[in-house]
């Protein structure tokens, strides 16, 4: 076959595959936007649902998801970053450290519904937190832990070894070296992991199903021991469990969930950009 033709065919196949990845995403976004944009207004965002959720807003679900994401990050980011530091900077190549690393990889592959059951068993029942924001945040936190550990580890490992050597040679202690010449350069990568975590924590339904999410609550949660409504579960409820919900509300809810994740990601991306700029690579 002619080399030119071969080249064209190969290029076309690669291009088509790439296109196939983009097309479904675009279609989903467009459909949700077109069908849901009509529902978007201040009342929808900031009011309580009324009339059996067929009217009014979805404020409690938005607030609940915000609480849950922030709660999950509160638990997962410090724990994940600190254990990544331990694994990269301190632990030697031992059987134990290999088992820990393997466990993290496997944790990432556990289906989310299993996290939900685990959270139900440990936090809701055994520790007695009940179905609450605390239980839900902890469950989501454990779910996103592997993402945060893995990306933090990669970020730490990508910091050139010479930074550590120079810092030590200037008389810095090991911890000072990590604190001053490793962590600052790893922060953008750590934030990338956090961004991925935000997306997962905000979107998953199964882990919050048994641990926190409420079908309908007439008032907002008062403390972290209260149940809350949350966007993904709310979306499931109004799409499948309650008849007669107008389509605009369903798609509007999906759109809000998407926008919320987008906004939180954007905040993290801006933060990451700030760190990168300060770095003067």
């Amino acid at each position: 076959m002619n080399v030119q033709v071969e080249q064209k065919i190969a290029f076309s196949i690669l291009f088509l595959c790439t296109l196939l990845v983009v097309v479904p995403v675009l279609i989903i976004l467009v459909i949700i936007f077109v069908k849901g944009a009509g529902a978007l207004n201040l009342g929808f965002l900031f009011e309580m649902p009324t009339n059996g959720m067929t009217e009014g807003g979805i404020f409690p679900a938005i607030l609940g998801t915000l609480y849950l994401v922030l709660g999950a990050l509160f638990f997962a980011v410090p724990l994940g970053v600190l254990s990544a530091i331990y694994l990269v900077e301190y632990s030697q190549e031992t059987v134990l450290s290999r088992i820990v690393k393997l466990a993290i990889v496997n944790l990432a592959g556990v289906p989310s519904v299993v996290y939900g059951l685990f959270g139900l068993g440990i936090f809701v029942l055994f520790l007695g937190f009940g179905a609450s924001i605390l239980s839900g945040s902890l469950t989501l936190g454990i779910m996103i832990l592997p993402v945060i550990i893995t990306s933090s580890r990669e970020a730490l490992e990508s910091v050139p070894q010479s930074f550590r050597i120079v810092s030590l040679s200037l008389g810095a202690s090991k911890w000072q070296t990590i604190r001053h010449s490793v962590l600052p350069h790893a922060l953008p990568g750590i934030l990338t992991g956090t961004i991925l975590g935000i997306g997962r924590a905000a979107g998953e339904t199964a882990p919050i199903l048994f641990t926190v999410a409420a079908f309908y609550l007439p008032k907002l949660p008062q403390s972290m021991f209260d149940q809350t409504m949350a966007l993904p579960y709310h979306l499931y409820v109004i799409s499948t469990q309650v008849p007669g919900i107008p389509e605009t509300i369903r798609y509007g809810t999906a759109l809000v969930l998407l926008l919320l994740v987008l906004i939180m990601n954007l905040a993290a991306i801006i933060l990451r950009y700030q760190f990168r700029r300060r770095k003067k690579w």
Binding site: I165, S167, S169, A172, K280, W281
Partner: peptide, 25 residues
């Protein structure tokens, strides 16, 4: 003190490179 084979300043400003050790100690 030690000077290495490849020049290895930190990816910081000239000023911050010098003050690195002072900050630490």
């Amino acid at each position: 003190g030690m000077v290495f084979q490849r020049p290895n300043p930190f990816p910081l400003s000239v000023y911050e490179n010098i003050t690195f050790g002072l900050e630490i100690h």
